[in-house]
């Protein structure tokens, strides 16, 4: 069975073989949502709360470090519970990759991935993409606004927590914002929200610079320049240094913006990429 690639080329591998990481990722995203939902729906409380802060097995606190940072910026010193939760989350993402949050956990990813897929499918090339550094400015801006106002201003409009809260607690108002992001990503900017604007992603990208788990273009000699990985990657700029050896000798993708989504591993017919750790600097052969 052959499958059509994002660029329309015919691949020798089946669609399933080309979607392993994608399926794993969707399973993780939806599974996490299900875990949050079986509490209120079935009364089985494995995890309670939402992505801002939660309680696992009624014992282990989890806190979004960015939210903890915001409460500090707003001038509130949180309880040890929140600190513990933030530390656990921080250590977790420092191990598996900062923006693993974006591609494996965040519910907005489902929306923007759909938008990106639609944009590819319909061949939409219109619009204007903002600078990729805008997210860092936004992150700095929201922190400054939090300090100035003394309240969590970002949480008023944060689509990430809004969508998750809406799904878990059954609120409808966030849908307008999510539709807005979907339309923006589809019609105006390719990967506009997650790849250029989202300050939550920017925060996790900073954390991701030290992360342990990494994608490596370990068989980059086998690359035939088909460009499939560049087309499918949500952050295509991270691939070049590793794949083409621009400015670095090793084949590791060390940019904090790599989300470890594994789509490059999926789509590559030459089996160039693999998931490994940051100290694995070997190239095959």
């Amino acid at each position: 069975m052959s499958a059509r690639s994002p660029r329309g080329q015919v691949s020798s591998r089946s669609l399933l073989a080309r979607s392993r990481w994608l399926l794993a990722r969707r399973l993780c995203q939806l599974g996490l949502l299900a875990l949050f939902l079986i509490g209120p729906l079935l009364g089985v409380w494995i995890i309670k709360g939402n992505l801002s802060a939660s309680l696992l097995f009624d014992q282990i606190p989890l806190t979004d470090p960015l939210l903890l940072l915001q409460t500090l910026a707003a001038g509130h010193w949180p309880y040890v519970t929140a600190w513990t939760g933030a530390l656990i989350v921080l250590v977790f993402y420092a191990l598996v990759g900062g923006r693993v949050f974006c591609s494996w956990v965040c519910p907005v990813n489902l929306v923007t991935d759909t938008a990106a897929w639609l944009r590819r499918r319909l061949g939409i090339k219109t619009g204007r993409t903002p600078d990729g550094n805008t997210r860092y400015w936004l992150l700095a801006g929201l922190m400054a606004a939090t300090v100035l106002t003394g309240v969590l201003v970002w949480e008023w409009v944060n689509p990430v927590t809004l969508l998750h809260r809406a799904l878990v607690f059954g609120l409808g108002g966030a849908s307008l914002l999510i539709i807005g992001i979907f339309l923006y990503d589809t019609l105006i900017a390719s990967r506009g929200w997650c790849g250029h604007l989202c300050p939550v992603g920017a925060f996790y990208a900073v954390l991701g610079r030290i992360a342990l788990v990494r994608v490596s273009a370990h068989r980059r000699d086998a690359c035939d320049d088909c460009m499939e990985c560049f087309v499918i990657c949500p952050e295509p700029q991270v691939i070049r240094p590793a794949l083409k050896g621009v400015g670095q000798p090793h084949p590791l993708i060390l940019s904090g913006n790599c989300t470890n989504c594994g789509r490059c591993i999926d789509v590559c017919d030459r089996d160039v990429f693999k998931m490994t750790h940051r100290f694995d600097q070997r190239s095959a052969q």
């Binding site: 509490g39 939402n50 801002s52 802060a53 707003a74 003394g150 969590l152 949480e155 878990v168």
Partner: peptide, 17 residues
């Protein structure tokens, strides 16, 4: 209220409990 809006992370754990 103003301190509350600085401290609450809107996690809904109070709602759940």
């Amino acid at each position: 209220e103003e301190d509350f809006l600085a401290a609450c992370v809107r996690c809904g754990l109070c709602v759940r409990d």
